[in-house]
Each structure stands twice: as C-alpha cells, then as structure tokens.
C-alpha cells in the first residue's frame, strides 16, 4: 500500500473546497445580508439540527482540505523522512482533534427542533 495517494488526494482537495465554498455562500446568504444577527437568532440557527450538522460538515471539510494542502507543502519543502513523518502525524492529529472538538461542541449545544 502506498502511503500517499495521487488522484485520491487531488479529488479530496477539490471536493472539500467545493463543500466549504457552498457552505460559505449559504452562511453569507443567511447571516451576512443585512445587520449582524442577534445572539438569539445565531444561537437558534447554529444549534438547530441542520445548522449543527452543517457546522460539523464545514469544519470536517476544512480539515480535510487543510490536510491535502499541508501534505503538499511538506512533500515539497521538507525532504528528510525522519522530519516528514512526525510532522505529518502531528498535523493529522491536530486536524482530527479539531474535527472531533467541533463535533462534541455542536453535540452539547444540539437541541432537537430548535
């Protein structure tokens, strides 16, 4: 098995970019048009079932996208394998931790039917 993939990562980078782009556009359309939303409105939106799920998807996509980008930077600029693998492992750990944390946060706030 190969450690790094060619096409698969390339596709992942673009799919996650599209997800992020779509959700940003959605956010802009619902929240950023007009005056800044009140706390109540923001809280209700973000902790509703679709809102919470979309926030988790957004951060998961960001982390997936960041993974491919950082991996490319490391493969280009950091040549010694002894440095490369620990660095990649660290970044993967951080990105997974971020995704998990957002998932947990949204789960605690999650209110059915809000």
């Amino acid at each position: 098995m190969r450690l790094f993939h060619g096409q698969r990562a390339w596709v992942l980078q673009r799919l996650t970019a599209l997800v992020v782009l779509l959700l940003l556009a959605l956010t802009a359309a619902t929240l950023l048009i007009g005056p800044a939303p009140s706390y109540e409105r923001w809280h209700a939106l973000a902790t509703s079932a679709p809102g919470a799920v979309l926030i988790v998807i957004f951060f998961a996509a960001l982390c997936g996208h960041a993974w491919v980008g950082v991996r490319d930077i490391v493969l280009d600029y950091i040549q010694p394998t002894a440095l490369r693998l620990p660095l990649l492992a660290l970044i993967a750990f951080i990105l997974i931790a971020i995704t998990l944390r957002v998932t947990l946060t949204m789960a605690t706030h999650f209110t059915v039917g809000a």
């Binding site: 190969r2 790094f4 096409q7 490319d72």
Partner: peptide, 12 residues
C-alpha cells in the same frame, strides 16, 4: 503509472 503523488500530482 502517472497516478502518483509525485510523478504527476506535484504539479500545482
């Protein structure tokens, strides 16, 4: 042969 992170996909 080219579906490889180095051979083809280093291109940005």
């Amino acid at each position: 042969y080219l579906d490889d992170v180095y051979r083809l996909y280093r291109c940005r």
